[in-house]
Structures are given as structure tokens and as C-alpha cells.
């Protein structure tokens, strides 16, 4: 996993609520056996017409918007556990997703792939979304160390699990840790009731 540091970037607004992982990456694009290339089909059916021409009114196709931060509506990433959703967002170039609420499995998958889910208040989110829509050159600063997100119109702190924060900053993942405690896992197995 790549190390995550502070990010200063413009953002792409996608203020829909309940964006499910079938929208982020539809199931028919899950046939690959590697992690690469899912960004091409990110938001496929919102981004492209059935004839594969881009939908001009979709924010990812609007050249006024760009950047490494996606600012989405409430309850982002609900539905399927497909980690391909996190891979697609990261592969496309996003490093941060901002929302006022994240689905559990998506949040975990994002953190396991160096994609930072930043949960802010509904008020902050709507202020931020409006600011970007009004002026796409608005820059956001996301500081993981300080756990703060800020732009011209305000600053808010966000929560992140202390262990996950360490992992992101150092580029570690859970496998490194779990493989290292093999003896303790074996001791658990020997002592527990197994049915």
C-alpha cells in the first residue's frame, strides 16, 4: 500500500445520496482476476451512454472539475462488499472520498487500499459541495496527521481509527501484522472450543 500524506487538491462533486457499489463499478466489470484497470469503468453507467459516448452532464466528464478528491452525498458505498469499488476510485486517481456517512464495508475496503474516507457533518458537506459547484478551482486540504479537512469556507476535523491512521501514514497493511502474530493465533486455536 502507498503511504498517505497530506493532500491539497481541487475536487469533483457528486452530491447523490446512497451511491451504491453497483454504481461505482457495475457487476459486469468484475470479471478481471487482477486489481488493475478498474478506473476505466468507474461509474460506468452514469459516465457513459449505452453507445459508450460520455454523458456530458456527469461531473467526471465535466472538464471544469478535476482533482484527487471526490465529494459525494450521504451513505456512500452501500451495497456489495466488492473491493473493486475502492480499486476503481483509486485507479481513476482519487485519493480521498468525502461524505457525511459511509457504508461499513466500503470504508474498510477504502482504508485497506490507501483511499481515505473522510466523514464530515451534513452542514460542512453541503457548504463544501456548493462552494465547489460555484467555483471548481476551490482547493481542499486533507491532513491525515491532524485529522482535518479545510477549504476557504471552513475547517472540520474527522475521525480515523488510530491503528488505521498509522497504517496509512506508513503504508502498512493488516496482513503484515496478522502474519507476525501467528504464534498467538495458534495459541488461541489450542485453547478455544472448536466445533
Amino acid at each position: 500500500m502507498e503511504k498517505f500524506s497530506k493532500i491539497i487538491s481541487t475536487a469533483v462533486p457528486l452530491p447523490n445520496q446512497d451511491i451504491d457499489t453497483d454504481q461505482i463499478i457495475p457487476a459486469r466489470f468484475l470479471k478481471a482476476t487482477t486489481r488493475a484497470g478498474f478506473g476505466d469503468n468507474l461509474f460506468r453507467d452514469w459516465r457513459y451512454n449505452p453507445d459508450n459516448s460520455p454523458k456530458t452532464d456527469f461531473p467526471l466528464n465535466d472538464s471544469t472539475y478535476s482533482g484527487e478528491i471526490l465529494v459525494a452525498g450521504r451513505n456512500f458505498g452501500c451495497g456489495s462488499s466488492r473491493e473493486h469499488a475502492a480499486w476503481a476510485l483509486y485507479d481513476y486517481g482519487f485519493k480521498v472520498v468525502v461524505s457525511s456517512f459511509f457504508a461499513d464495508i466500503f470504508k474498510g475496503n477504502a482504508l485497506n487500499n490507501g483511499l481515505l474516507p473522510v466523514q464530515v457533518s451534513d452542514e460542512f458537506l453541503s457548504k463544501l459541495t456548493e462552494a465547489i459547484q460555484k467555483d471548481p478551482s476551490v482547493e481542499l486540504s486533507v491532513d491525515l496527521e491532524k485529522q482535518s479537512i479545510s477549504f476557504d469556507g471552513g475547517t472540520e476535523s474527522f475521525e480515523v481509527n488510530s491503528y488505521k491512521k498509522e497504517c496509512l501514514i506508513n503504508g502498512y497493511d493488516d496482513i503484515d501484522y496478522l502474519v507476525n502474530i501467528k504464534n498467538e493465533i495458534e495459541a488461541y486455536e489450542a485453547s478455544s472450543i472448536t466445533i
Binding site: 485497506n112 487500499n113 496482513i175 502474519v179 493465533i185
Partner: peptide, 22 residues
């Protein structure tokens, strides 16, 4: 419960997951 592919790897490698109790 459902897990992502990184966690599938974790269980394959250790039969364990790091979790925060819901």
C-alpha cells in the same frame, strides 16, 4: 459477515481479521 478482497487475503494468511466490535 461480508468482507473485501484484502480481508479475504488476511483470512487466508492468518484465519483472522482485525475488527472493531460493532
Amino acid at each position: 459477515f461480508g468482507i473485501g478482497t484484502s480481508q479475504v487475503t488476511q483470512v487466508m494468511a492468518s484465519q483472522c481479521l482485525l475488527q472493531i466490535k460493532p
